[in-house]
């Protein structure tokens, strides 16, 4: 079968580009250490999230190491707990793991302007681990349609100087 010379060149170029794209993604995962949301968070009963060991009562907890924190967040129609009524507060210069689940329908959990962006699926726990270097304020937004009040589902995340972050902020 005859393939025109230009077409062969184009084919080789396209394949090279594809391999490069896969290479950059692989580098992101292996080299830069970007971890995807996956199945490590485990499953929970959506109507009783704290029943299994995969989830704790919503709030901020001290983590396994000194500057590590765990934040447990429940998404529900149409609020984040914590996040909507009270901001989520974590200290700067810390490593934070968010554990996010939903108690009713699908929701999204997006920290606006960052790459913290996961689905909140009833029955599943999404875990995202990130580092916060500087004090800042971020918005939280539900980015998956969850019912007729979806557009009201928002919240905030405050990264405060370590000195201001007292242990009362921790459950």
């Amino acid at each position: 079968m005859h393939v025109h010379r230009f077409e062969r060149l184009w084919l080789v170029g396209a394949l090279t580009l594809i391999v490069l794209f896969i290479g950059t993604v692989t580098y992101g995962a292996v080299g830069a250490g970007y971890g995807m949301v996956d199945d490590t968070g485990g499953e929970v009963d959506p109507t009783n999230t704290t029943e299994s060991e995969n989830f704790r009562s919503p709030g901020v907890y001290n983590g396994s190491e000194s500057d590590h924190y765990d934040v447990y967040i429940e998404a529900k129609q149409f609020l984040f707990v914590p996040g909507t009524s009270d901001p989520v507060r974590v200290p700067a210069n810390s490593t934070v793991t968010f554990h996010v689940t939903s108690t009713d329908v699908m929701h999204g959990f997006e920290v606006v302007g960052t790459n913290i962006n996961t689905m909140a699926v009833p029955g599943q726990v999404a875990t995202v681990t990130v580092e916060f270097d500087e004090p800042d304020e971020y918005g939280l937004v539900c980015n998956e349609y969850c019912g007729n009040g979806h557009h009201d589902m928002e919240g905030s995340l405050e990264v405060v100087p370590p000195a201001q972050f007292n242990e009362s902020g921790v459950n």
Binding site: A14, L17, G41, G108, T118, G123, Q124, V125, T127
Partner: peptide, 29 residues
């Protein structure tokens, strides 16, 4: 479409990613 989903192992997301990238080929052609 489920890169951001909990409950799906990363390896299977990776397989979907490589297949997707190769799906560029017929469109390039």
């Amino acid at each position: 479409h489920q890169y951001a989903d909990p409950g799906v192992p990363e390896g299977f997301k990776f397989i979907a990613m490589t297949n997707t990238m190769f799906l560029l080929l017929p469109s390039f052609l």
